[in-house]
């Protein structure tokens, strides 16, 4: 279907099938995540793990069906940029959580370390 004007655009490989498939999968994944939390069917930690997995799958579905990332050679620089962004996100989010929760643990008032002289740190 694509003519000269649209062949290099992000949606150039898109078809109705992509959007129908993306919509259906997204509805299933979203409803499953909400249902798990609203019914409390699983223990808390198991629920968190499952909804994180469902979110990751849904992000993948959106990338393929809506943003049309297909791993073709034409898109390799887009994928490299995305991987680099992902690395930065990992450092940023993982690092923040690690540092702040570690600091939180260390600053608990009943921690034995608090009674130690400062030079032992």
């Amino acid at each position: 279907m694509a003519d000269r004007k649209t062949e290099h655009l992000p949606g150039a490989g898109a078809s109705l099938h992509h959007y129908a498939c993306g919509m259906l999968l997204s509805v299933i994944l979203t409803v499953a995540a909400f249902a798990l939390v609203m019914t409390g069917a699983l223990p808390r930690n198991a629920t968190i793990f499952v909804i994180l997995v469902l979110a990751a799958i849904q992000i993948f579905v959106h990338l393929v069906d809506f943003l049309h990332i297909d791993g073709s050679l034409e898109q390799r620089w887009n994928v490299y940029a995305a991987l680099f962004a992902l690395l930065v996100v990992g450092i940023l989010v993982g690092g923040s959580i690690w540092i702040m929760f570690s600091a939180h643990e260390r600053m608990k008032p009943d921690m034995p370390g608090m009674t130690m002289p400062p030079e032992t740190f």
Partner: peptide, 28 residues
């Protein structure tokens, strides 16, 4: 959560309707 689920559905629907914009643009 019911309200957030509705919000999520609305945003998802808008993504699909924009998909129809893309398809229509391809066919001019």
């Amino acid at each position: 959560l019911g309200f957030v689920l509705a919000e999520t559905g609305v945003l998802l629907l808008s993504s699909v309707t924009f998909g129809f914009v893309t398809l229509a643009a391809q066919e001019n």
